[in-house]
Nucleic acid binder design. Structure first.
Lengths: 337, 337
DNA sequence: GTGAAAGCGCTAACAC
DNA sequence: GTGTTAGCGCTTTCAC
């Protein structure tokens, strides 16, 4: 059976409170007493019962992280960053995946799936502003590329600027017809900011932002990128560059180009988003926007904990860093990886 | 403030117990009473406090899943499978990553990091048999390719057989010098079973199992596979086939072959392990052993819960299915993906 | 079928 | 500095 504070107290011949003091590193305990109690703790193999502590304190020590999918390495790496950042504050992370589906995201945001959490970090895809109006009581922090006008902290890179940088890079290389792969059908448009960046930069360069070169997709995986690329080509379009919503889609698109005998970057240059490890090891390495995942994770955790501690200022947008990593899919083979 | 059972009881003019009965769907409650209480529950927006319930029942409703890393999509997909399987039983999953480091794995196995869990599913890399002798009290289920002689449930595919199938496939294609990439230095040898399969199948085919073609690595990512491949080639070896410990390593190796102008599969055929999505979208799609991740996740969860429920039989090994998916990296371009 | 009361293990007042 | 005690919100005997 499990040993409790009481057992330790009896074993050490002291009161429960004293044991509690030792366990919680309370200041005013004499070293002698501390050691005596510690000995009993070790002898009995006492481990605090968190459920009881939580009941008492009203805190669980758990924050939830809800991501669209784990299979995308970007989110996997982000999850690792959040888990590590939380661990530094003695918090543990409960991971959930929404599949990027609105109903799931709503459920998660209302604390349905994980009802034992102190706070929630959510990366929404389809969630709409109105879904967040009436929420459960735990602090919520948003991460990712959607743009919401709501009183929650939101950690993200500047998606418009990053997209502009990517398109600028392509234009600087002399490309004139830049396709965008990965806009979304329907009213929910997660890629909105990146499409906007694409449009703004083309316009700024005096180039037409040809909406016929914007390929919508249902999902955001390799296969969706491949399908979108195929559709574009089948429609008779032959852009000289492709900017994809994310790396998996860019890689899917490159596979199609390869199958059709089109060379990357000679015929078509490709830029992705997220800088996933996979992009560094293909036959053609992938140029990509690289968000500082570690910072996003760290900032998100800090944000939740600040709100939990009541020390948080007004809800705010926090910008994480990013940089454009140029590789073979735009520069060609010469430069080393 | 949070509403409790007591509040609901007062509001409905009944006792706490009656409300509890309704909340827990206890059988013997008159429909009239049930509805009256339900109305109060709805009116007050009552939601049960899980911490209290857990304290009382001694269960938390949480199981932990400890994986070497999330970045590897194989583990990410496995995590998704476990999360879904657990959700079907109203369990939530706490995800942890060990980095495949022994100390971390020991800590996790002793329930150090997550002390709120009812059970644990662990995928060990470096963990040794002796590390598991003295453990915390929650049920433990092992998954993955390590082989332990210990009284815990262990869910895995037949790694030796799968490796033999992979090598057999290469031999059937006429390959005679099959390298193995991803053995491990040091005493801990996670790849052990796969190396054994490699050795057995070569021997069975009357071919030499040339240990000089076994490349050891420190990690198991793309870069490790690339480095191992480079080393092999730099040492003057020119196998006509490579069997890699996992897909990322296989892809890393293919990148090196590509850089050196060696063709896959004409010059060197490549087989990976895990059937990660990435392998289906490279310039050369990757032949790979495809474990039934969904089954592994489902079986692991079922196993933990059975042990929790006390309905579990003797600790046992459970074999999940797998199949060899043949693609361009062994068959060449002709067959469709 | 429903109510009263004990207690899960812990923390935090408050006494001493 | 250490002990006593109440009570977090719930489930669960056991009466009624």
């Amino acid at each position: 059976m499990r040993v409790s504070l009481k057992d330790v107290a009896a074993h050490a011949g002291v009161s429960i409170k004293t044991v509690s003091n030792v366990v919680n590193n309370y200041q005013h305990v004499t070293p002698a007493m501390r050691e005596r109690v510690q000995r009993s703790i070790d002898a009995l193999g006492y481990r605090p019962n968190l459920a009881a502590r939580h009941l008492r304190k009203g805190r669980t020590g758990i924050i939830a992280l809800a991501l669209p999918e784990l299979g995308n390495p970007y989110f996997a790496e982000l999850a690792a960053a959040v888990i590590d950042a939380a661990a530094e504050h003695d918090y543990i992370v409960l991971l959930d995946h929404t599949g990027g589906r609105r109903e799931q995201e709503i459920l998660v945001s209302q604390g349905f799936r994980a009802r034992v959490i102190d706070g929630l970090i959510l990366s929404p895809i389809e969630l709409e502003t109105e879904d967040l109006r009436d929420r459960a009581d735990v602090p919520l922090v948003l991460i990712g590329e959607r743009d919401y006008d709501l009183p929650y902290d939101h950690i993200a890179i500047d998606n418009v600027a990053a997209a502009r940088d990517a398109v600028r890079h392509l234009i600087d290389l002399g490309r004139r017809e830049v396709a965008f792969i990965g806009a979304r059908r329907g009213r929910s448009e997660p890629a909105q900011l990146r499409v906007r960046g694409w449009r703004e930069e083309l316009t700024a360069a005096g180039l037409p932002a040809d909406e016929g070169l914007v390929a919508a997709t249902d999902g955001w995986g390799h296969a969706d990128g491949a399908a979108a690329m195929s559709r574009l080509l089948d429609a008779g379009r032959r852009p000289d560059a492709v900017f994809a919503y994310n790396d998996p889609m860019a890689i899917g698109a490159m596979r199609v180009l390869h199958e059709r005998g089109l060379r990357v970057p000679e015929d078509i240059a490709v830029v992705g988003f997220d800088d996933v490890i996979e992009g560094r090891f293909g036959a053609v390495t992938l140029t990509s926007v690289s968000p500082d995942k570690e910072a996003i994770g760290r900032l998100a955790v800090a944000s939740v904990l600040a709100r939990l501690g009541g020390t948080a200022p007004e809800p705010r947008r926090v910008r994480a860093d990013y940089r454009l990593v140029e590789r073979e899919s735009t520069l060609g083979r010469r430069p080393a990886r």
